[in-house]
Structure formats: C-alpha cells, structure tokens
Amino acid sequence: MGDSVSWSPPPLIRNPWLRYGLYIGAAIYLSLALGTLHLNWARLAQGLDRGWAFISAFAHPDIAKHGREIFEGFVESLTMTAVATAAGVAISLPVGLGAARNLVPMPVYLLCRGIIAVSRTFPEIIVAILFVKMFGFGPLAGVATLAFATIGFMSKLLAEDIEDIDASQVEAIRATGAGPFQVLNYAVQPQVMARFIGLSVYRLDINFRESAVIGIVGAGGIGATLNTSFERYEFDTAASILLMIIGIVMVTEYASSLVRGRLR
C-alpha cells in the first residue's frame, strides 16, 4: 500500500456493473427524451422576435392601456386569496385536529386523513376546472379551489405538529381532571399555535400566487386578465401584470417572514 503512488477517490457506487449501467441508462434516456422535442426551427426563429418583444416590454410596461382590468383583476385576486385563506384555515382546524393520531379515535382519523389526501393529490388547476364546471365562471370557483387546497396543506401540517407535541404536558392536564376541550385549550394549543399562525401567513402567500394561475381556466382573478393579454400579444400589459405579481409576492413574502420571525 505504502508503495503505491496513484490514488483516486472510491466511486460513489461501488459495483462497477451498476455504476456503468446507470451511466449508460442515463445517456440513453437523455437521448430519447431530447429526441421527442421535435424542434420546429422556423417557428422558433419567429419566436425569437416575439421573445425579444416580450423582454423589451419589461423595459416599458404599460399599465394605463388596460388599467381598469388590471386593477379589478388584482382586487379580485387579493379578495379570493383573503377569503379562501380564512375559510380554508377555519376548516383545516377541525380536520387537522381529527387527523392527529394521538387525539382522536381511529374512524375520525381515517376520515380526516382521507380528506387531506384527496385535497393534496389534485393540482389546483384541475380542481379549478371542476369547480368552474360546478359554480360557473367567476371568483367563487377560485375561492373554492384555493380553500380546498388550503385545507389539505394546513390540516396535514397541523396534524403533524400535534402528533409531535410533548405528550407529558397533555397527560399533566388530563391528570387534573380536565375535559377534552380543556386539554385542547391548555395542553395542545400553546404548543402548536405559533407555528399554525406562521403557516397560515405562509399559505396566504401561496394562495396569492395560485390565484394568479387559476384565472386561466376561468376561476377569476388576475390570471384571466393575464391570459387575455397574452392571447392578444399585448406584451406590455402582460409585463406590467407579471411585474406587479412579483412585487406583491415580494411584499407578502417579506411581511410573512416578519410575522413568523416575531412569533418565534
């Protein structure tokens, strides 16, 4: 050993067959995947002009031309966000409590976990399609979509938090002869409240971003305005909307980090 002067680090995957097999497999996959691209160069060349037009539109965004639509779109988006977050958080409280294995009997647990699973599985936009079909076009379908997604998100995290709480505190309160609601109030709530509020604020942030999307399928909000502006190739309007979305997200993200910082 001491005589050998060349040395290279041992490979991450020790079995050479598996290692080279993975390399070759990755190479084959990549070539197949890139092969499915079907690039249409003529269309791409045409796209370059449009792409440039769009990028330059960021230099002179135009709010004035469709000012009223943009304003109404944002008001609708913010409204949807606020209502959906409030409703979703309110509903997620009981669902989250019910999905905590250390608090409730098995049937309730399964029911609540089922609700969470359904809510988390479908992408928002698909839920939005279904709600638009049910409620008709407009912000109410959007509110329902966002609230539905919020329930899954908040309940799951709340349930996990509750399952992680210090069991001795619950026992201590139970030992005093407290009823179930008193246990919740004195032993559970103090341990999970701060994080729950923090998560609600975080979800508010997510809901705003999502509200900008679900308008594409007719569920209200700024997404509809954005979609229209793209369809009409009004890049200056689209650019101004995108810039405003980025701005609002930055503000809400900063605000939510402030709130979460103070709660900690």
Binding site: M1, G2, S4, V5, S6, W7, S8, P9
Partner: peptide
C-alpha cells in the same frame, strides 16, 4: 478532479503510515 501529483500522494501515504 482530485488529481494530485504522484509525489504528494506518496507523501500522504508515508504520513498516514
């Protein structure tokens, strides 16, 4: 690339020893 001169590697082995 972890390609050190052979003299360095030999010295490293001597030191570890």
């Amino acid at each position: 690339a972890r390609r050190f001169p052979r003299a360095d590697v030999a010295e490293a082995f001597r030191l570890l020893d």
